[in-house]
């Protein structure tokens, strides 16, 4: 006996699952409150949800509420006083905050404008299964699974002005090979960006999986109508990738607005905050014993995240079926 059958109250109208299974009625099932769980099973359902709710409350809801509440306080661990909007006012007066905000948005934009289009393009090409596509897919995906810290260490060696590969190659090509890429204010932000915008493995895999789910009949019909491969890619594949492209953009944005480890290891936010991110800025405040201020910065990161989620979901109509 299926769970749906078990949980369905025998004397009332069938729930959505039963309708879907039966597939015989034309009437849209009406959702009636409290009717989907039989009385006898409610306690069991509640109990089974309890561990999840406790974990959610302990590790997400409570910290989140503490963060939001203490963002309005002067709190350094040792002392606590409500401060109203002081933390936010101070943030608006601090040029370092705006530098960190600008850098964070810059990193996020670089991801969206370089990483996603590049990942989609490579994913579409690999989906055509050219010779060696499996090996290529693996090679492209490997950087994605390397830890951010290890990646940062590798790149700090790559950029080292004295012994790094980059300057040595430039020097061998007769170009100036003595620039300190990570600690020169003119190049630091670009050097940091260069370390992550080409990690496209995640987007490639998402795109390839989505392409694999597109019905073959569409391509066959297009082919019969005389559509070229390029036309099939641009008129069928690309539009049908809308959902997954939106998802990839959203994930990249959410990862990048919280960027910390890469920058912390590469430059610690310097020189002169040229590479600092909001997360790093909040961390410094925390180290300085200004926990309330750090949480105010944290709440700004959350707010930006929420705005991005809503915007990207709307623009890409994520979740809406295409076919």
């Amino acid at each position: 006996m299926s769970a749906a059958t078990t949980l369905r109250p025998p004397s009332r109208s069938p729930g959505r699952t039963a309708h879907a299974m039966a597939g015989r009625t034309k009437r849209t099932p009406r959702r009636v409150r409290g009717t989907t769980i039989p009385r006898g099973a409610r306690k069991a359902v509640a109990l089974s949800l309890l561990p999840g709710l406790v974990l959610f409350g302990t590790f997400f809801l409570v910290p989140f509420l503490v963060l939001v509440a203490t963002a309005f306080a002067r709190w350094g661990g040792l002392d606590f006083a409500w401060a109203g909007l002081d933390n936010y006012r101070r943030m608006l007066e601090d040029p370092v905050f705006f530098k960190a905000l600008g850098n964070t948005l810059f990193y996020a934009a670089a991801s969206v404008l370089i990483q996603v289009p590049l990942g989609v393009a490579v994913g579409m090409v690999l989906a055509l299964r050219p010779r060696g596509w499996k090996a290529l897919r693996t090679i492209i995906f490997v950087p994605f699974v390397i830890s951010g810290a290890a990646y940062a260490v590798i790149f700090s060696m790559f950029y080292n002005p004295r012994s790094g590969l980059l300057n040595n190659v430039l020097g061998a090509l007769g170009m100036p090979g003595d620039r300190d890429w990570l600690f020169d204010t003119a190049t630091a932000r670009w050097a940091v960006t260069g370390t992550f915008v080409f990690i496209i493995g995640f987007v490639v895999v998402l795109v390839m999986a989505e392409i694999a789910s597109i019905p073959n009949e569409l391509y066959e019909a297009a082919s019969v109508d005389g559509a070229s491969t390029r036309q099939q890619l641009t008129r069928i594949t690309l539009p049908l990738l809308r959902n997954v492209i939106g998802t990839a953009i959203l994930i990249r944005l959410l990862v990048d607005i919280g960027m910390f480890d890469l920058v912390f290891i590469l430059t610690a936010g310097g020189p002169d905050d040229a590479t600092a991110t909001l997360a790093l800025y909040a961390y410094r405040a925390y180290l300085g014993g200004e926990w309330g201020y750090a949480n105010a910065v944290g709440s700004v990161i959350i707010l930006i995240g929420l705005v991005l989620i809503v915007t990207v979901r709307r623009v890409f109509r994520i979740g809406e079926r295409t076919l």
Partner: peptide, 8 residues
């Protein structure tokens, strides 16, 4: 944070 920018 500041020393590299000052030297440059």
């Amino acid at each position: 944070n500041l020393w590299p920018a000052y030297v440059q």
